[in-house]
Each structure stands twice: as C-alpha cells, then as structure tokens.
Amino acid sequence: MVGMAHGREERITPRTTAEVVDGVGPRLRALRSHRDVTLAALSKQTGISVSTLSRLESGQRKPTLELLLPLAQAYQVPLDDLVGAPRTGDPRVHLKPEMHGGRVVVPLTRRTGGVRSFKQLFPPRSPAGEPTLKTHEGYEWLYVLSGRLRLLLGERDLDLGPGEVAEFDTHTPHWIGNVTDEVTEVLCLYGPQGERAHVRSRPAGPA
C-alpha cells in the first residue's frame, strides 16, 4: 500500500496474518488489565476456562472465533478491535440499529465503558401489555426528542414530552414505554452504577 506523507510517497507494509494472530494475546491481556477484570471473573462471564484464557493471552493458544466471540461480547467491543483489524479509512460513523424489546436502539458512540449514548425509537403503543417494572445495574438519563414517553419509576407515573429530561438509578423499579399513537424518539445516556452525567450551568448574572 502506498500513501503520501509530506509531499512524498510513503510505503505502508501490511501486516501478515501471523503478525495479526500473534498480536491478539497481548491485546486481550492489555484490555483485561485496563478493565481490571480477573481471569476467574472473565471465565465465569464467558464460559471459557481460566487455563484457556491464560494460554490465549500468552500466545500459547491460537485465537478462534469460538473463543473471540464471547470475549468480544463480554468486553462489549467489536470483534475487529480484538484482532486489531486495520481501519478502512472511512471517517464516517456507521451506526448499526439494533432491536431491543420492540424498540429500535442506535448506539451513538463506540465507547465501551463509562457513560454510553444511544438513540431509541419507541413504536406506537410499545411495549404492549401490562407494564412490568424491572431493576438492573446502572444509571440512566433520558431526553425526549419527539413524541411522548411514559416512565413508571417506583410509585411515580411520569408523562414526558419533547425537551423533558429524567434521570434515575436503575436499581429503582422502572418501566419505559410509548402509550401514544406516534413514534417517540429518545436520547439516552447510560452509565455504570454510581456514575452520573455531570450537568453544569453558567452562574447567574447580576440582577
């Protein structure tokens, strides 16, 4: 591959398959260290034995799809990131909508830890049926872009319209749904337990 640098040609040598494979182990070890996850905890989450994980990180075990797919899911990163696949050079962000509980969820960032952002589209009258309040780890911040959103939060029943915001600890029993006849668009920030969005505003000027 040939590129241009400072007005002259620069030859970029592509990595061989062996070099890519050899780099997987150190990449996995660095990622686990950065996430502060033990081999035992990772083994429990992925179903891969501790010895296999250790050999994979040290390069004594060759990476396979059967091993990398559960690891990518556990770390919540694309498979390409685990193997260090080269970027295509396309600067555009390619959003990949997913379906969750009848609603469309569009990840807005590639960030895998900390506070993450999503756009959610709730179809009319969804989810259907009687509301079932649930709890889980994390902290959530919702901003209604269009339509109306119903939020059951503990004993509170909230009706949110465009421009309205709600934030809550997801340990609190909650249910989120669209009870109107139009699609509701919501911007969502979701973070791990104890991590909240920091809201700042300018000090009020003199009266």
Rank of each mutant, 00 (worst) to 15 (best):
G138Y: 04
L31I: 13
G101F: 08
A197P: 04
A207L: 02
Y190H: 08
D157Y: 08
G59H: 07
V93G: 03
F168L: 04
P63C: 09
W141V: 00
Y75I: 11
L67A: 13
M1Y: 11
T170F: 12
P173D: 06
T52P: 00
K119W: 01
T170D: 11
T88Q: 14
L189G: 06
L28M: 10
K62E: 14
L133I: 08
G129I: 02
G138R: 03
G113N: 04
R55V: 12
T170G: 13
R15C: 10
R125N: 15
V115W: 00
T180M: 10
S201Q: 10
D81H: 06
G114K: 02
K119A: 01
P86W: 06
A197L: 11
V37P: 05
V186G: 04
G114R: 02
V83F: 10
V37K: 07
G25V: 02
V93A: 09
P127T: 06
A204C: 08
T172Q: 15
R103K: 12
T109V: 13
R196Y: 01
E164W: 13
L71G: 00
A41K: 11
P206R: 01
S51Y: 00
V37W: 14
V21N: 03
L39W: 10
H94V: 15
P86G: 03
D80H: 07
N178D: 10
A85E: 12
E182C: 05
Y75P: 05
G177W: 05
P14W: 09
P70W: 11
T184V: 11
G113E: 09
E57W: 13
H174M: 03
T46P: 01
P107C: 05
L153A: 06
D80W: 04
L65Q: 07
Q193R: 11
V24Q: 09
P26G: 00
L71D: 01
D80C: 07
S33W: 12
G154Y: 01
